[in-house]
Every structure is written in structure tokens, then in C-alpha cells.
Computed example of a mutant assay.
Amino acid sequence: MAIDAVLAEEAGQNPLLPASYDIIWSLVCFIAIAFLFWKFVMPRFSALLDERAEKIEGGIAKAEAAQAEAAQMLEQYKAQLADARSEAARIRDDARAEGEQIVEDMRQRAQEESARILAQGQVQLDAQRAQIVTELRGDLGRIAVDLAGRVVGESLEDEARQRGTVDRFLDELDSVSAPAKS
């Protein structure tokens, strides 16, 4: 009969619903597990999540700081590059100006050297001209004395007479050639 009583009792209940004592003990176990989970597991889980969130936020902050530093370094690099370019342009301009100055100095020196060489040549030319004129005067004087001696018929061998005659002749030649040069 005991089996019949259990079967009759079970026949009045819904087979899908458990017995009420099972529901009560399951609820007590669930509350105990939920309390332990809430008391011990959730704080550790929360701490772990908070720690991880802090690490992530710290990583993000570090990344932002690194990105800001990189942007600053890029700006410094660009500024240094611009300074280097302007310095290179200035050096190039200075070198160009210095080159032009060197060329101008060399041109000036060449002109001075050319003027000096021309002056020296002119001095040498004047000296040679004076020497040639002196030699020609002497030769011309001897020829003139010989011709004059032949024309006059007397000997102009006397040195003093010869010089006087030659000097008179050359003075007359200078006076005649002076107006012709003008």
C-alpha cells in the first residue's frame, strides 16, 4: 500500500513540476551559493575587473602620452629640419657671395697685374726707345759728319767740331719734326 499511496499521490501532481521539498532545498542551496558567490567571488571578480580596467586605462593614458610625445618630437624634428634647411640656404648664399667676392678679387688682381705688366712693358719700351734713339743719334751723327765732310770738302775729324755739328743737325731735326708730330 505504501507504493499505491505514493503512486496515487504522484498521480495527482504534475509530472513536470518537482516536489515542493525539492524546490525548497534547491532554493536554500541556491541562496547559499548566491550568498557565497556574492560575498567571496564577486569582490575578487570586481577587483580583478577594476585592476584590468585600470591597466587598460593606464595603457590608454600611456599610449596617449606616447602619441603626444611623438607629435611633439615630430614638431621638434620639423622645426630642426626647417632650421637646417634655412641654415643650408644661408651657407649656400654665403658661399655664393664668397665665391663672387673671390672671383671679383681675382679679376681685380688680374687687372692690377695686367696694368703692372703694361706699365713695366711701357717702361721697357721707353728705355729701349731711348737706347735706340741714342744709338741712332750716334750713327746718324757719324753719317752726317761723313756727308758734311764730303759736301764741305774739309775734314770734320776733330771731335769737338764733330759734336757741335752733330748737335746742331739733331736740334734742327728735332725742331723740324716737332711741328710735324703735332
Rank of each mutant, 00 (worst) to 15 (best):
V28E: 00
D94W: 05
A82M: 04
V6C: 01
E104V: 06
M73G: 07
G58K: 08
A89R: 06
V176C: 01
R163V: 10
A144H: 11
Q120D: 15
R150Q: 06
L156D: 01
S177L: 15
F45N: 06
E75M: 09
R44C: 02
A66N: 08
D83C: 02
A79L: 05
F169M: 14
A2W: 00
A119L: 12
V152G: 04
Q122V: 15
G59V: 02
I91Q: 10
R163L: 12
Q108I: 09
A66C: 03
D22S: 06
G59P: 05
A63P: 02
A178L: 03
E159D: 14
A65F: 07
Q72N: 08
D126L: 13
L140R: 00
Q80C: 04
A180F: 13
D158A: 03
A97C: 02
L140M: 02
G12S: 14
A148T: 11
P179Q: 00
D146T: 11
K62F: 03
G58D: 04
L81C: 00
M73Y: 12
G153E: 13
L17M: 10
Q67E: 10
F45M: 13
R52Y: 03
Q76Y: 10
W25D: 14
A34W: 00
W25S: 15
A61Q: 13
E104S: 13
V6I: 07
L48C: 02
Q13F: 03
